[in-house]
Amino acid sequence: MSHPSEHNPHIVPREKLDFGLDQAIPKYWLGGDAFKTRLFDAMSTIFPEGERFFISCVRDFRDQVTDPHLKREIKDFIRQEGQHGIIHNQFNDHLRQQGINVDRLERATRDWLFDFLRKHLPRKHTLAITAASEHLTAIMAEAMFERRDVMGAADPRMFAMYAWHAMEEMEHKAVAYDVMQKVAGVGYLRRVITLLEVTFFFNLRMLSYTNYMLRKDRFSRWERAKLFAKGMWWLYGYQGLFSSCWRAYLRYYKPGYHPWQEPPVASYGVWLDTFNRTGDPVEAGRVVYKSALV
């Protein structure tokens, strides 16, 4: 199994970050587009419980890890994922103020992840679900921040929040995978089946939450149908947000695959250099927007 060390960045927990989320944020912060905004808002409501699920699934095997390097990576992975949940919870308060029942959505996510998956499936399987989910979030970073047309119209604070999340996903994208392979001994079949499961259920949940939010925004059924028709092409059509990642997505199905066979995207280096110099995640996002997007 190949995982070139030169491609492996350090996992750095970054805490107490200020994105200006205590200030007013436009309701449709992604270029005034209701569907695109609510899609990312839907993801934000999934992340806190999702991150807690990932942490739990990796912790299941932490006591079996003997490699000191992997132990350290697990510790930093947990700290990063914990911060992701905290920051998204801060933003989710804005959604509550807009009349979105975030607690209801988080409860639905929690029921699925903890009361169904973790209660009824083997720990190896839920760890494999975590590794597959980390693959999806890592390749989404490439789709979101290597193209100006995806996030270019976003409010700078929201752009910065999602950029920070994406860059840290690239730093720890191999942790759950390494625990799955080296400690849990998950085989190829379970690995690829769980990616299919995650792909289907994540998209289904994200789109259902998007529809709920648009309904709360008082879009009629016909208006939502039109928004979804246009939005689904933006997601899955030619050069769509998700369809443009198909090569990176399919690499997970290759026998012998490892996440570090691919280095972080170019915008990662730009973001990291700026953040290390300024300590300001919003400024790091601004520089990514100016110099890394084409």
Results as ranks from 00 to 15, higher is better:
78 I>M: 11
79 R>H: 12
81 E>L: 13
81 E>G: 14
82 G>P: 10
82 G>C: 09
83 Q>N: 12
83 Q>F: 11
83 Q>A: 13
84 H>R: 01
85 G>F: 07
85 G>T: 06
85 G>S: 08
85 G>D: 09
86 I>R: 08
90 Q>S: 14
90 Q>P: 03
91 F>V: 09
91 F>L: 12
92 N>R: 06
93 D>H: 13
93 D>R: 14
93 D>I: 12
94 H>N: 08
94 H>G: 08
95 L>S: 10
95 L>H: 11
96 R>T: 15
96 R>P: 02
97 Q>K: 15
97 Q>M: 11
98 Q>C: 11
99 G>S: 14
101 N>W: 02
102 V>E: 06
102 V>H: 04
102 V>C: 08
102 V>W: 08
103 D>K: 15
103 D>G: 13
103 D>C: 10
105 L>A: 04
106 E>V: 08
106 E>M: 14
107 R>M: 07
107 R>L: 10
108 A>G: 03
109 T>H: 04
110 R>G: 01
110 R>T: 07
110 R>E: 08
111 D>I: 13
112 W>Y: 14
112 W>L: 14
112 W>S: 10
113 L>E: 05
113 L>A: 12
114 F>C: 07
114 F>G: 02
114 F>K: 04
115 D>W: 09
116 F>Q: 10
117 L>A: 10
117 L>S: 03
118 R>V: 05
118 R>E: 13
118 R>I: 06
119 K>T: 12
120 H>Y: 14
121 L>Q: 06
122 P>N: 10
122 P>K: 09
123 R>K: 15
123 R>L: 11
124 K>R: 15
125 H>V: 14
125 H>C: 13
126 T>H: 11
126 T>I: 11
127 L>K: 00
128 A>E: 09
129 I>K: 01
130 T>I: 10
131 A>F: 02
131 A>D: 03
132 A>E: 05
132 A>V: 10
133 S>T: 13
133 S>R: 01
134 E>H: 06
135 H>I: 05
135 H>R: 04
136 L>V: 11
137 T>Q: 02
137 T>C: 08
138 A>G: 11
138 A>V: 02
138 A>Q: 01
140 M>W: 04
140 M>K: 00
141 A>G: 15
142 E>F: 02
144 M>S: 14
144 M>W: 08
144 M>C: 13
145 F>D: 00
146 E>G: 09
147 R>D: 07
148 R>S: 09
150 V>I: 15
150 V>G: 03
150 V>E: 01
150 V>H: 00
151 M>W: 04
152 G>S: 07
152 G>R: 02
152 G>F: 03
152 G>Q: 05
153 A>Q: 05
154 A>W: 02
154 A>P: 01
157 R>Q: 09
157 R>T: 10
158 M>H: 02
158 M>I: 12
158 M>Q: 02
158 M>A: 05
159 F>V: 01
159 F>H: 09
161 M>Q: 01
162 Y>T: 00
162 Y>E: 02
163 A>V: 03
164 W>N: 01
165 H>Y: 03
167 M>R: 04
168 E>K: 06
169 E>R: 04
171 E>F: 04
171 E>R: 05
171 E>A: 08
172 H>D: 05
172 H>S: 06
172 H>Y: 07
173 K>Q: 00
174 A>C: 12
